[in-house]
Design a protein around this nucleic acid. Structure first.
Length: 474
DNA sequence: AGCGGGTTACA
DNA sequence: GTAACCCGC
């Protein structure tokens, strides 16, 4: 008898619940993977992340080989055909039990139900483990057994629960008995998606992820609270791409941070506690997408905001995408995203709020564009972040809280270093001019005029939200 | 994880 | 003048 592990967004052998479950008996194990680019593109995932997934898959293949687990990877179009291929492979390799880590998103859940039904027809079973979050969405509910909709009480409950259950990572499985199955070649895997320029900035693999985690928790994490909002510093972990493809587990990250803080949840290093807080935000958003599947279909979390008449000005949208808004920090952030497939979190908030509150463009457009460009594109975190900025979300920014991009630059890029790097046409401007060049400086550097007036935009957005609230009351 | 306008309390 | 605080949006 042979067991199979079906890899999806958990491309690692370390701390992998499904892999451990598949390795409990002494049976050999085969790994399956189905690359479904058409499906991912429907979810707006772009080339940078798709290529990164494949590069990580190749790393995984090498790691699996050390455990005598061959990786059979196939190209499929969508989830439906991946289920058909799974069934076929199970018959071909005489697999009775498939193990996989469950995923929270709606189409992924539907796929997994289909897989369960289809495998049942051939007498095979599929067994799911919990992996995407440290605690299951069912474990963190209010006294009335409802999901938390506000972060702070969620966090309180989350920490109380983890203190009860404890936190452990899983061991590596021992090497499996050998099988005859043949691994798919790295060349074939990499032929499914060509690299784009942004991929050169991100080395794939679990080893690289752990290296980054160890380096971060040994040094920068102590300064994380004070420096994380300054995009010119390397003050964040930059682990999100690895979490998004599952090259590292969030459990490993949390454990490493806790270890550095002597297993304290509420005292010790402020830097570490702030980073842990961000990991719990990640749990919060993933739990919400699980509890509210309509979010996956584009619903606003706050129903009242569904009536807001967002702008569809495509010319404005294009200027935002290309980093030509005339607001230096906004443009710097967008150009960073377009170039390296990643944007500093402070700038994700600044650029998202600029699109939604100053250009008044539908947050769904920004959400899709981020997914298209981000190497760390994660549905729950991205949707949560966009709805936070647009003030349509759970525990989001109040609608009247609108970042002033010029002030944000003065506060978080005080020397203008980040702007100078990403908006090189402004690099020669002085320390004051860099934040808001005058018309002459804009003309001579070829930098565009500001496309909107901050104060007017803020007035407009406030009126629109008030109107939507009034409509709701009727 | 706001902004901007106002008031107060000082130099 | 201006820093510190307060408040409504």
């Amino acid at each position: 008898m042979t067991n199979a592990i079906w890899f999806r967004s958990d491309l690692r052998i370390y701390d992998n619940p499904a892999l451990i479950a598949a390795s409990e008996s002494n049976d050999p194990v085969i790994a399956f993977y189905f690359f479904t680019p058409d499906q991912h593109r429907k979810h707006h995932t772009g080339s940078v992340k798709l290529r990164f997934m494949l590069e990580n898959l190749v790393e995984l293949k090498h790691d699996l080989a050390k455990l005598n687990i061959p990786l059979v990877a196939l190209l499929a179009s969508d989830y439906g055909s991946s289920v058909a291929l799974l069934k076929k492979l199970c018959q071909q390799h005489n697999v009775r039990q498939v193990f996989a880590n469950s995923e929270i998103e709606l189409n992924e859940q539907i796929r997994d139900h289909q897989a369960t039904r289809e495998l049942d027809k051939i007498g095979s079973t599929i067994c799911f483990s919990q992996d995407q979050t440290i605690l299951s969405p069912q474990d963190i509910l209010t006294g009335a057994s409802k999901p938390y909709r506000v972060f702070t009480p969620f966090k309180r409950a989350w920490i109380k629960t983890i203190q009860k259950t404890g936190l452990q990572s899983l061991p590596l499985p021992t090497a499996r008995p050998k099988t005859n199955a043949v691994s798919t070649s790295a060349e074939e895997i990499l032929s499914w998606e060509a690299p784009v320029d942004a991929n050169q900035y991100w080395k794939p693999g679990s080893q690289e992820a752990f290296r980054r985690l160890e380096e971060f928790t040994a040094t920068a994490i102590e300064r994380y609270r004070d420096e994380r909002d300054h995009p010119s510093l390397t003050a964040t972990s930059q682990l999100s791409p690895y979490l998004a493809v599952g090259a590292i587990s969030v459990r490993s990250c949390m454990l490493q941070a806790l270890l550095a803080n002597n297993f304290e949840w509420d005292s010790g290093s402020q830097g570490i506690l702030t980073w842990i807080n961000e990991l719990i935000w990640r749990e919060f958003y993933k739990h919400l997408s699980c509890h509210y599947p309509e979010l996956s279909k584009g619903a606003a979390f706050n129903q009242k905001t569904a009536l807001i008449p967002w702008s569809r000005d495509m010319e404005h949208f294009t200027r935002w995408k290309e980093g030509l808004t005339g607001f230096p920090l906004v443009d710097a952030g967008m150009r960073q995203l377009n170039t390296i497939g990643w944007m500093h979190n402070r700038l994700r908030m600044v650029t998202a709020m600029f699109l939604t509150k100053q250009l008044f463009i539908d947050w769904h457009l920004g959400e899709a564009y981020f997914m298209q460009k981000l190497i760390d594109g994660d549905y729950a975190a991205n949707n949560g972040g966009w709805q936070w900025s647009a003030s349509t979300g759970a525990d989001s920014a109040p609608y009247f809280r609108v970042f002033n991009p010029t002030r944000q630059a003065e506060r978080f890029d005080a020397k203008g270093d980040f702007i100078r790097h990403w908006v090189p046409e402004l690099s020669q401007l002085g320390p004051k001019q860099i934040f808001d060049p005058n018309p002459f400086e804009r003309q001579t550097t070829g930098y565009p005029a500001t496309m909107v007036d901050h104060r007017e935009s803020v007035e407009h957005v406030k009126q629109a939200f008030k109107m939507a609230q009034a409509m709701e009351a009727i």
